[in-house]
Nucleic acid binder design. Sequence first.
DNA 1: TATATCAATATACTTTTGTATAGCGCTATA
DNA 2: TATAGCGCTATACAAAAGTATATTGATATA
Lengths: 129, 129
Amino acid sequence: MLKELEEIKRCPVSYVLAINDTLNAFQGKWKMPIIGVLLFGKKRFKEIEREVAKITPRMLSQELKDLEANGIVKRTVYDTIPVTVEYELTPSGKNLSTVVESMLEWGLQHRQSNIKLKITGKEELRKMA
Amino acid sequence: MLKELEEIKRCPVSYVLAINDTLNAFQGKWKMPIIGVLLFGKKRFKEIEREVAKITPRMLSQELKDLEANGIVKRTVYDTIPVTVEYELTPSGKNLSTVVESMLEWGLQHRQSNIKLKITGKEELRKMA
DNA sequence: TATATCAATATACTTTTGTATAGCGCTATA
DNA sequence: TATAGCGCTATACAAAAGTATATTGATATA
């Protein structure tokens, strides 16, 4: 396969940790959709809540804290009355777009090579509607 | 940002489904480690069990079925006595290496830009040891 | 005064995911 | 005969993740 994979083969622990960090950035039902909307710019709490279909404030609050603790999202409080809070991706968070793109490419080619998944997709579409 | 992101902006449902497929390929505690070992070639059940630290046969069996159903792993039974079973990545499964590599790159750069995570990493290292 | 928005938090609960442990039928080796 | 290896499955349980619903204190609007 590729050169870099040969390096993974030697499998230094730091590589495992690095991949794990990336996995954690997306883990769970809501992180990807949240990062998704934040890739298009700063948003306030309620804006994200509106744009991420069916998320509850509890989940949104929890996930934003998590993303903040992991250096993916930056939270800014403005002392307006009442307070305004804005969430935006850190530079590192913005870089996740390259990972998202590789996921998109793989997903598209995988679907093309797999008729079964296309059918599943249609079912999911119905559920989503 | 990038051109492709502009396309996501229009957000056709098929894109969401594609990204979801990729996410599902890695979701959970064990899929990434399993795919990881299979990236270096065909393996038998017990080999994978040995190479993926601390996985139980129940989890391994479950995850392999899942990966097979998603067209990521191919299972081959040889009629030796007793049977020999081999697992290998499908072409689509092998292509996941590009996603893994982008995860690796992001993870490494993210760690460099984040001292806090480096400390967490050391703790995880202790736990892993 | 009544209702709505903002940015959440609290409590209780259900569902999903993962663990622990034992066992199956088969065969090869000591 | 006893033990170990192979490729799993069964049962019971614990922990993690997610949901539902209500509420907070502040302000703005009808």
